[in-house]
Every structure is written in structure tokens, then in C-alpha cells.
Write a protein that binds this DNA or RNA. Structure first.
Lengths: 123, 123
DNA sequence: CTTGACCCTCACACCAATGTCACGGTTTAT
DNA sequence: ATAAACCGTGACATTGGTGTGAGGGTCAAG
């Protein structure tokens, strides 16, 4: 199938599909006229890519194990687990950072409300 | 004081101080030779800017209330509270997003470990 | 007068996936 | 044959605070 059909089937923009190819995540053949020709399997492949992107992985990381997980169960691809753990640690530290900011903001909001219980105006 | 001194006093890079001026957060005068001349108050001002940046506010948002909070208590600057609330909502939604991803990752890690209790290798 | 430590402006790089032009070739249907 | 609907490549924009480098003034001490 051509890129337009793959895009329509998956909901992923043509631009992104071309980008995935550039990043080594898709490897369509080329027709005589230069058009990309995708196998029917590409549809599931694109959904798989989207799934990993949704987990916050980069195309680089996905490229490291995509060929394996397309053929095997994830559990048998040794590259996956360390990447998951790395990502999890990263997410955790982001969450902590955001929670600190959140507490700080809540404190400051509370201070303002305490200090200005009425709807006072200024400036 | 000149920009180098302000940078040394605050720990903020010269590059950033120039950027803050560009964004309307600092307004140094200029000496005859074109050098920026900062008032002693600029030091506290820079610390205040850093504080708000640390809360995740943009220079644009800070510019909206900085002149007020430098003269009054925060509670009397009406622009502050809505921005805090907006930011808080944003932070909250980011935390939720990250927590969803986190749960997802943890599930997937658990699945892998369940499915592969031994240190099996492949590929 | 020279050296070195300042200062200035302008401008590109970064991160990473996606949008969006421009410009041009191909195919399909009328 | 022509228009519409595809497809191709290339390249710039986005986000936003900061790093970095080029190229060039200013000034104080020796």
C-alpha cells in the first residue's frame, strides 16, 4: 500500500511516516516511480511505534528493539527491560520535580489567600 | 554595577541576564560607552526572577507581574494568583500524564519479569 | 603602547517530533 | 489532454532558556 493509505489506516500523518522511515523504524520498498510501497504488516508496525512513543520513548530507543518485538514477545527482547527501567527512573524524577513545584505553588497560593481574604484590588 | 558583577553576585550567566533584559525583566541604563549599568536593586530583582522561573513560569508571565511584586507584597498583585492557578492546573495535568505512563511502564516491566522469571537470553 | 579583562551585538545550536511550505513528477479519471 | 489527487525531496518553523563563538570596542595596569 502507498503512504496515503497507511496514513489513513493508522491516523498517523504522512509527514510522521516519512520521519519514521528516516529514523529506521519503517523500511518500505520503492516502486519504479519512486513511491514508497508498504507491506500490510506495516500497519501493525506503525501502531507498535505509536505505542512506544506514547510511553515517552524516543525513536532512537524504539529503533533499538523494534525489529525484535515485531518478531517475538517483548519479554524475549533483552533491550527492552533496561530501556523501560531507564525511562521509569526518568519519569519518576520528573514527577518528583513537578510535585515539588506543585507544593510550592500551593503554598504560595495559600499565602496569598490568607493575606488577602477579601477580594481586594490593587493597581 | 556592570553585568559581570551582577552575574558574579547572582550566579546567573551573563547570557541569561542579557536575555532577561531582552524579555523586559531587567531595564539597566547604559553608560556612555554602551555598557549596561545595573542598580544595586537589580541583584534582588534577578533572584526574584530566578525564583519565578523555578516555579516553571515563562519570562512572559513573569514580565506580567514582576514590576508589581518588586514594589508590593505578592498578595497585592492581582496578576499573580490567576497565573499561579493556571500553572498549577498545568502541572497537575502533567503529573497525571506522567503517572499514567509510569503505571503503564510498571505493568509492562512486571509482565516481562513474570513471563521471563529466569535470566533467559535471546538474540 | 600593549596586554588582558572587561563589554557590546549578532547569530547559530540545542531537543525531537511534527506541521507546513515550495516545487515538481505520476497517475487516474474525465 | 487536462485537472485532480496522489507521491517525491528539501528545508524552515515550532518551544524557550541557555551555551557558545565570531568580530570588535573600552579601559586600566604595566
Amino acid at each position: 500500500m502507498k503512504i496515503g493509505e497507511l496514513s489513513a489506516r493508522t491516523g498517523v500523518s504522512i509527514r510522521s511516516l516519512r520521519y519514521y522511515e528516516e529514523q529506521g523504524l519503517l523500511a518500505p520498498t520503492r516502486s519504479d516511480n519512486g513511491y514508497r510501497e508498504f507491506s500490510p504488516l506495516a500497519e501493525e508496525q506503525v501502531r507498535t511505534i505509536q505505542l512506544y512513543l506514547g510511553l515517552g520513548l524516543s525513536t532512537d530507543q524504539i529503533a533499538g528493539f523494534l525489529h525484535c518485538v515485531l518478531k517475538n514477545r517483548e519479554a524475549f527482547c533483552n533491550e527492552v527491560l533496561p530501556i523501560y527501567r531507564e525511562k521509569l527512573a526518568e519519569i519518576d524524577s520528573q514527577i518528583h520535580l513537578l510535585q515539588n513545584i506543585k507544593l510550592n505553588l500551593e503554598d504560595r497560593i495559600r499565602s496569598i489567600l490568607d493575606e488577602r481574604p477579601e477580594g481586594q484590588l490593587e493597581e
